[in-house]
């Protein structure tokens, strides 16, 4: 009786160690962040960026206030003004990351594809004030995302079947692929 339970105990111990030892010698599944940057899906909904035209010269945003309107956590505050060509442009654009729930609605609603969620995900601060991104910060984030070749969480998507509406600043090849159902390669 006693022998039987000792035998069972040892058996269990060996089985347990077997798992531990195999795992010890196999490849790990976690990433030693922050020494190593983890793999992030290209559709990751991270910190917002304000994107530019492909020559990175002109803002895409037309200051339509739709992102501020659609945002469910009311974290976007903006003001428009007139630029040197009498066009409607952004004057102030604040995103409060402390309130943002990274739902991506702002990107989805944007008629100019100006605000997009980038893969940047390590935005931390000890100060709440720093969690409010202003226009300059968002432009910086957007430009660096453009340098990395990102297109935002939704990828390039435009057009409605028959009538395809392209904008000059778009990468046409990628758009065609997106429309024909192919996954966008970045």
């Amino acid at each position: 009786m006693i022998l039987k339970s000792v035998y069972d105990g040892i058996k269990g111990l060996i089985a347990g160690y077997a798992v531990t030892i195999t795992k010890f010698f196999s490849r790990g599944t976690t990433v030693p962040y922050p020494e190593k940057t983890p793999f992030v899906s290209e559709r990751w909904r991270g910190v917002h960026g304000l994107f530019f035209t492909d020559n990175r010269f002109e803002e895409l945003c037309v200051s339509c206030h739709l992102c501020a309107k659609v945002c469910p956590s009311v974290c976007i505050t903006m003001e428009g003004s007139e630029d040197y060509l009498q066009r409607k442009r952004l004057k102030r654009f604040d995103v409060d990351l402390g309130r943002c729930i990274y739902c991506g609605y702002c990107e989805e609603v944007c008629p100019a594809d100006a605000i997009r969620l980038t893969t940047s995900h390590d935005y931390v601060s000890r100060d709440r004030e720093n969690l409010i991104l202003h226009k300059e910060d968002l432009i910086e984030i957007g430009k660096s995302a453009m340098r990395r070749g990102e297109h935002g969480a939704l990828g390039i998507r435009r057009g409605d079947g028959k009538k395809v509406v392209y904008q000059e600043n778009r990468n046409l090849d990628a758009s065609f692929k997106a429309l024909s159902g192919e996954r966008v390669k970045r």
Binding site: V74, C75, T77, D94, D96, G98, R99, R128, E129, L131, I132
Partner: peptide, 10 residues
């Protein structure tokens, strides 16, 4: 009416 977080001007 709507609480808009920590925006400075407000």
């Amino acid at each position: 009416k709507r609480h808009r977080g920590l925006l400075l001007d407000k």
